[in-house]
């Protein structure tokens, strides 16, 4: 892949970046992490993966356990100090680092300052490529009609909407077809999906119907949690739509088996 990195000026662009893999990518879909590394390297970055990184702390944060959240956040802040940028292939975990960490340390000025420095350097993968590195196209090939789900945190906390669409536009063979409500939540919500399974099911059922109605053969999004949820529902409904993380397609790794499938390729 040859990335077009015409702007902003090369000397301002971060070179040494850390990848925050996220716990779901680590466990379920390592390819998303490797796709992220490839996209970053192609755009001229050196990628490091701090080895002892675990989770961003959202399960505790969203369950009201502030003490544990702070302990985990402090661990992450410590681990990711010293990099020019921290890149996350998830709007949800990216938003946790960049929008929520500083507020955890309101009563600890020194720690708060460190959390703010991390927050300012943390980016979701696709917005980092487009908004920070100025990537305008990718050299990838994916022969299918694609629909894109805007995951909530990426969309509403980080303003990610056009960036993935702009890059997907440059993928050869790919046709974009929007579903009717791409901005409505899929019903994942972390622990929500198992604490309130009936409501979650109603939400993902509607999303699955919307995806099917779009006529697309592939569903993409930027968050693995949402993708596992939607893939699981589409497959339970017997819907043959392929589900993938957007990074896989952008990194020209679209020949991997889709999420929740083996063998079947595109």
């Amino acid at each position: 892949m040859v990335a077009d990195v015409s702007s902003p000026p090369a000397n301002n662009r971060p070179r040494r970046v850390a990848l925050f893999v996220t716990c779901l990518v680590d466990l379920f879909r390592p390819s998303v992490g490797f796709a992220a590394v490839k996209l970053l390297e192609d755009a001229g970055c050196t990628v490091e993966v701090p080895p002892l990184q675990v989770c961003c702390g959202q399960p505790a944060y969203n369950s009201g356990d502030r003490t544990t959240t702070r302990a985990i956040a402090a661990q992450i802040v410590e681990m990711f100090e010293g990099y020019e940028a921290v890149v996350v292939p998830s709007g949800s975990c990216g938003g946790m680092l960049s929008r929520h960490y500083p507020g955890l340390f309101d009563d600890e000025p020194a720690m708060k300052a460190r959390a703010e420095r991390l927050a300012a350097r943390s980016h979701e993968l696709v917005s980092f490529l487009v908004d920070v590195l100025g990537v305008t196209s990718v050299a990838a090939h994916y022969e299918d009609v694609v629909t894109y789900h805007d995951s909530c945190s990426g969309l509403r906390e980080l303003g990610i909407k056009q960036q993935p669409r702009r890059l997907l536009d440059s993928v050869r063979g790919l046709t974009m077809r929007e579903m009717s409500t791409p901005e409505v939540c899929c019903g994942f919500g972390g622990t929500f999906c198992v604490k309130y399974p009936e409501i979650s099911n109603a939400m993902v059922g509607e999303k699955s119907a919307d995806v099917a109605a779009s006529g697309a053969g592939t569903l993409l999004a930027g968050d693995l949690g949402c993708l596992l949820n939607m893939a699981g529902k589409l497959q339970r409904d017997g819907n043959p739509v392929r589900v993938r993380h957007v990074a896989e397609v952008l990194a020209d790794m679209g020949s991997l088996p889709p999420i929740g499938e083996v063998g079947r390729q595109r």
């Binding site: 390592p30 399974p197 099911n201 699981g232 929740g260």
Partner: peptide, 27 residues
């Protein structure tokens, strides 16, 4: 490539299949 039922995950698998991890180990 997925599970229709899984111990301790009935909240999920009652309504959805549970995608299995890719082979090859964690990231």
């Amino acid at each position: 490539g997925r599970f229709r039922a899984l111990p301790l995950a009935s909240g999920w698998t009652r309504f959805r299949d549970f995608p299995a991890p890719e082979s090859g180990g964690t990231f």
